[in-house]
Write a protein that binds this DNA or RNA. Structure first.
Length: 336
DNA sequence: AACCTCATCAACCGCTCATGT
DNA sequence: TACATGAGCGGTTGATGAGGT
C-alpha cells in the first residue's frame, strides 16, 4: 500500500536554492515496508541518527524526517522493548502519571525500552477504560483516588503474589483473609454486602445493598486483621520516613532506589501507598472506618459517584481489572 | 459466512522549544 | 535580536484484527 501525501517543507540545497517544492515531492505515508525499515536501519548503523530530514534524503527514503525519527525511536531502535506491559510497569506508569500527568516522554524515561507512544496508548486504552467503566473522568479526583487506593495497592499485591509464587513452590500467600463477615452495617444502617479484605484493610465491593445512595455520615464499623495487616498499624509509622525524592530531579535509578520494597526485596511494599497517603495528610488512612480511603469524605465522594450497574466484574483480561478471578472466588465464598 | 463493534497501536499532525546563523 | 530550522512532545487518527452476534 502506498499512501502519498504532502510534506510541510520544501527542500533546498546548501545555497538555499529550491531543489524540490512541496508539490513536486512524492513522499510516502502510512505503514512502513520491510525495505524501508532495512534502509533506515542500515543508514543509521553506518551514519548514526540525528538530522532526520537530511537523513531521510540521504537514505533514499521518501519519508519526512519526522516519520523516520518516529519509526526509529518507536519501533526499529534495538533496545525497544516489545510485548505486554508488565504489572511492575503498570504500577510505575500509574505512579508516575499521578505525579506528572501526561508527560509521556518523561514517564517513558523510567521504563527502559518503552516508548512514550506505547505508554500513551496504554493509558488511553486501559486506564481510560476503567474511568469509563466507573463513569467518571480519568482526571477526576474520584478516579485518581480509586487508582491510588484501589488499583495500585492491588497491583502491588499481585506483583508480590507473583514474586512469591516464583520464589517458592508453595501457593502464593493470599492477600485476603477468609472468615470475615459478609455484611457490614454503617452508621446510617446501610448494609454492605460483598466486601473483601484488602491488604488488611477492608475494601467495599461495588455491590452496595442500600436504598440510599447518599453515604452521609456513614462509615463501616468493623475492621479486619490479616497476617499482612498485623504489622501495618504498628510498624508502618516507623517506615513513614521512607520517601520518594521530590519529583523534579529523579533519575530512573533514583526512582527504583527510593521506592520502598517489601520483604520480598524485589517488589514495592504495598504499605508504600498507604504511607504516602499518610504523608499527604490523610493520617486516617490505615485506620479509616472502611480502611479503603484516607478520609470519610473521599470514601463518600467515591461511592456516591458510583453507578450501581457499573460493570466491575468482567470477563477477559484480568491483568488490569480491579476484580480478578481470585477476588471473584473470595467474593463468592464470603457470600455463601 | 457476513457483518458489526471494539480494542489496540503505528503513524501522523500541530505545536513548542532549542539551537544555529 | 530576529529568523530559520530541526527536534521533540502530546493529541489524534485510522488501519487492523479479534471477538461477538
Amino acid at each position: 500500500m502506498e499512501v502519498k501525501g504532502r510534506v510541510s517543507n520544501s527542500i533546498f540545497n546548501n545555497n538555499n536554492t529550491l531543489i524540490q517544492s512541496e508539490d513536486e515531492m512524492d513522499l510516502r505515508r502510512g505503514p512502513w515496508t520491510v525495505d524501508e525499515d532495512l534502509a533506515l536501519i542500515n543508514y543509521i548503523a553506518n551514519n548514526g541518527e540525528g538530522r532526520w530530514n537530511s537523513l531521510a534524503r540521504s537514505a533514499g527514503l521518501k519519508r519526512t524526517g519526522k516519520s523516520c525519527r518516529l519509526r526509529w525511536l518507536n519501533y526499529l531502535r534495538p533496545d525497544v522493548r516489545r510485548g505486554n506491559i508488565t504489572l511492575e510497569e503498570q504500577l510505575l506508569i500509574l505512579e508516575l502519571h499521578s505525579r506528572w500527568g501526561n508527560r509521556w516522554s518523561k514517564i517513558a524515561q523510567y521504563l527502559p525500552g518503552r516508548t512514550d507512544n506505547e505508554i500513551k496508548n496504554y493509558w488511553r486504552t486501559r486506564v481510560q477504560k476503567h474511568a469509563k467503566q466507573l463513569k467518571c473522568d480519568v482526571n477526576s479526583k474520584q478516579f485518581k483516588d480509586a487508582m491510588r487506593y484501589l488499583w495500585m495497592p492491588r497491583l502491588v499485591e499481585r506483583i508480590q503474589a507473583a514474586a512469591a509464587s516464583t520464589a517458592t513452590a508453595t501457593t502464593a500467600s493470599p492477600a485476603f483473609s477468609a472468615g470475615a463477615n459478609t455484611t457490614v452495617t454503617a452508621n446510617n444502617n446501610t448494609t454492605y454486602n460483598n466486601f473483601e479484605v484488602h491488604s488488611g484493610n477492608m475494601m467495599l465491593a461495588p455491590t452496595i445493598m442500600s436504598n440510599n445512595n447518599n453515604f452521609g455520615g456513614s462509615h463501616v464499623t468493623q475492621s479486619y486483621t490479616t497476617p499482612e495487616n498485623s504489622s501495618n498499624g504498628t510498624a508502618s509509622s516507623d517506615s513513614f520516613g521512607t520517601q520518594v525524592s521530590p519529583v523534579s530531579d529523579l533519575t530512573h535509578q533514583d526512582y527504583y532506589n527510593n521506592v520502598p520494597v517489601g520483604s520480598n526485596n524485589n517488589v514495592p511494599n504495598p504499605d508504600y501507598y498507604y504511607q504516602q497517603a499518610h504523608q499527604l495528610g490523610f493520617s486516617d488512612c490505615i485506620t479509616s472506618p472502611s480502611g479503603m480511603f484516607p478520609t470519610q469524605e473521599m470514601e463518600m465522594d467515591y461511592f456516591n459517584s458510583m453507578d450501581p450497574n457499573t460493570p466491575w466484574i468482567q470477563s477477559g483480561d484480568t491483568t488490569d481489572n480491579f476484580w480478578n478471578v481470585d477476588n471473584m472466588l473470595l467474593f463468592q465464598q464470603l457470600n455463601m
